[in-house]
Lab assay of single mutants.
Amino acid sequence: MNLTVNGKPSTVDGAESLNVTELLSALKVAQAEYVTVELNGEVLEREAFDATTVKDGDAVEFLY
Rank of each mutant, 00 (worst) to 15 (best):
E16D: 13
Y64N: 09
N2K: 13
N40S: 01
G7K: 05
L24S: 02
K28W: 05
N40K: 01
V54H: 03
L3T: 01
E33I: 07
N6Y: 01
P9N: 06
E22A: 10
T21Y: 09
F49M: 05
L3C: 05
E38T: 15
T11L: 11
Y34G: 09
E61N: 15
L44M: 04
A26N: 06
P9V: 07
Q31P: 09
V60W: 04
K8Q: 11
E16Y: 13
Y34P: 05
A32N: 09
E61L: 12
V5E: 03
G41M: 03
L44P: 01
A48M: 13
V37C: 04
E16W: 14
A26F: 14
V29L: 08
T4P: 00
A32L: 12
D56S: 10
V37F: 06
K8L: 11
F49G: 04
P9Q: 07
K8G: 05
V5G: 00
E16K: 13
V12W: 09
D50C: 08
R46Y: 08
T4M: 13
V54P: 01
A48W: 10
L3N: 01
N2G: 06
T4C: 13
E47F: 08
K28L: 08
T36I: 13
K28R: 10
L18W: 07
D50Q: 08
E38V: 15
N2E: 07
T4L: 13
L3R: 00
L18H: 03
V20T: 01
F49I: 01
G41S: 04
N6T: 04
T4N: 06
A32G: 09
L18K: 04
T4F: 08
D50T: 09
G41R: 03
N2Q: 12
T11F: 15
V35H: 04
A59F: 14
V60M: 05
A32S: 12
G7L: 02
T52H: 06
S17V: 12
P9K: 07
T36D: 06
M1Q: 02
G57P: 02
L23T: 04
T11D: 05
L3F: 07
E61I: 13
E16H: 14
L39G: 01
V35A: 05
Y34T: 11
T36C: 10
A30K: 09
K8W: 10
V5S: 02
E45Y: 09
G57N: 06
T53E: 10
A51K: 14
N6W: 00
E61S: 12
P9M: 06
L39S: 02
E47N: 11
S17T: 13
F49C: 03
A51D: 12
G57K: 04
Y34H: 12
E22M: 08
E45P: 12
F62E: 02
L24D: 03
L27Q: 02
E45M: 11
K55R: 12
N2I: 12
T52I: 12
V35K: 00
V29R: 00
T53C: 13
V5C: 05
T52D: 02
T11V: 13
E38I: 15
N40I: 03
E42K: 13
D56F: 04
V37I: 08
R46P: 09
M1E: 01
K28F: 07
A48F: 12
V37A: 03
K8I: 13
Y34M: 11
V54K: 01
T36E: 07
L39T: 00
A30R: 06
K55H: 13
D50V: 07
V43Y: 08
N40F: 01
K28G: 14
L39A: 00
N40C: 04
L27V: 03
L18Q: 03
K28H: 13
K55T: 08
E38Q: 15
R46A: 07
A32E: 08
K28Y: 06
Y34S: 10
N6S: 06
T21E: 05
D56I: 04
E16G: 11
A15C: 13
N2R: 12
V5D: 01
L63M: 12
D13H: 15
A15K: 13
S17Q: 11
A30W: 14
D58N: 03
L24V: 05
S25L: 14
V37K: 00
E47W: 13
L23D: 01
D50K: 06
D50W: 07
N40R: 02
N19A: 05
G14T: 10
E47C: 10
D56W: 06
N19R: 06
A30N: 12
K8D: 06
L44F: 05
A51I: 14
L27H: 03
A51P: 03
V29W: 08
Q31C: 15
E38M: 15
V43D: 03
T52E: 03
Y34C: 14
E61K: 14
N19H: 04
T36P: 02
Y64L: 10
V37P: 02
V35L: 11
T52P: 01
D56G: 07
A26S: 07
V60L: 13
K28T: 06
N19C: 06
V43A: 08
E42D: 09
E42C: 12
S17A: 09
L23M: 06
P9D: 06
K8A: 08
A15F: 15
E38S: 15
D13L: 15
T4Y: 09
D13V: 15
Y64V: 11
K28V: 06
E16Q: 14
R46T: 06
N19S: 15
V12G: 01
E22T: 07
T21Q: 07
A48Q: 12
S25D: 12
Y64A: 08
G41E: 02
L27K: 00
V35S: 04
S17P: 08
E61M: 11
